[in-house]
């Protein structure tokens, strides 16, 4: 028989207890060494979480069957035709924007916007731990984007959209003949502009003002503050533009849903915003 070794006597004393045991042993966290052995501590955590996940997956797969409808039939369009749930946020955008903006421009901006985060967020604080008050702006912006624009829009798409992509409550009957008055009007028309050229100018001023004017004014106002100096014009330009695009999506949705405003800027065949 191999030597009879009692694990407790050989274990590094410092390492004896990691979290739960620390309280039991009454050792303050600060007095413990910073490093622990991966085996068994991390491997154990991974093993347990993996087992739980696989168990849930097995039970789920035994009890819920993957969907399978009638064979594909290109002549029979279902109403509504929904994209997979994780793309319903994008499909929802189609209500408010041109297909090329909703389907191409905004997704590209989301991907690019996510990728530039590490390069434009120069706040050195909050690196490697949870904190809100050390990075209020970053976290608030991310939460709005993630929860409102991503999770929220998907929720609308999954639960509140029915035939004709009309709004329904989840408990409503999906009436395929529901008639919704098309009362949407362009913003320039509402404020009394009747000529096409005038409407275009008015819209362009608003959109450019939103994307460049407001950030520009803010820059003029704050550019000498230490935070802005450190950020620099290039980084500020990227952040403020992505921010205004994101906020603009929310504003546009609100205008449509609350005031039936169709577009703000209309350039036929090229761009409607």
């Amino acid at each position: 028989m191999a030597e009879n070794i009692n694990p407790a006597t050989i274990q590094d004393q410092e390492e004896v207890k990691v979290t739960a045991g620390r309280a039991r042993a009454n050792i303050p966290l600060a007095d413990l060494p910073d490093k622990v052995h991966t085996w068994p501590y991390l491997v154990r955590a991974e093993f347990i979480s993996g087992c739980v996940l696989l168990l849930v997956l097995m039970v789920w797969s035994i009890t819920v069957d993957a969907p399978m409808e009638e064979p594909a039939n290109p002549t029979k369009t279902p109403n509504p035709s929904k994209a997979p749930w994780y793309f319903l946020g994008l499909q929802e955008m189609l209500v408010y924007f041109d297909p090329w903006i909703a389907g191409v421009l905004l997704p590209s901006l989301i991907i690019v916007g996510l990728m530039v985060i590490p390069y434009v967020d120069i706040n050195p604080k909050g690196n490697g731990y949870y904190t809100f008050h050390e990075r209020k702006f970053a976290i608030t912006t991310f939460l709005v984007g993630f929860l409102v624009l991503w999770v929220g829009m998907i929720t609308i798409g999954v639960f509140f959209r029915g035939p004709g992509w009309n709004l329904f409550m989840p408990w409503d009957y999906w009436d395929p003949h529901k008639v919704v008055p098309l009362a949407n009007i362009d913003l320039p028309y509402i404020v009394g502009i009747r000529s096409e050229m005038g409407a275009m100018l008015f819209g362009a001023v608003l959109v450019i003002g939103w994307l460049a004017g407001i950030p520009g004014l803010f820059w003029q106002w704050k550019k000498d503050s230490p935070a802005m100096r450190e950020l620099g014009l290039l980084r500020y330009g990227i952040v403020s533009n992505l921010f205004m695009v994101m906020a603009g999506v929310v504003v546009k949705m609100a205008l449509r849903l609350m005031f039936n405003i169709k577009y703000i800027l209309v350039i036929p065949n090229i761009l409607n915003i």
Partner: peptide
């Protein structure tokens, strides 16, 4: 891949957006 109604119409909706790609659609 299941090639049912759910599949082709979801993908039809998705790929239709590519029609509107600036310059390339």
């Amino acid at each position: 891949l299941p090639w049912d109604q759910l599949a082709i119409w979801a993908v039809t909706v998705g790929t239709n957006m590519a029609r509107a790609t600036p310059l390339l659609g």
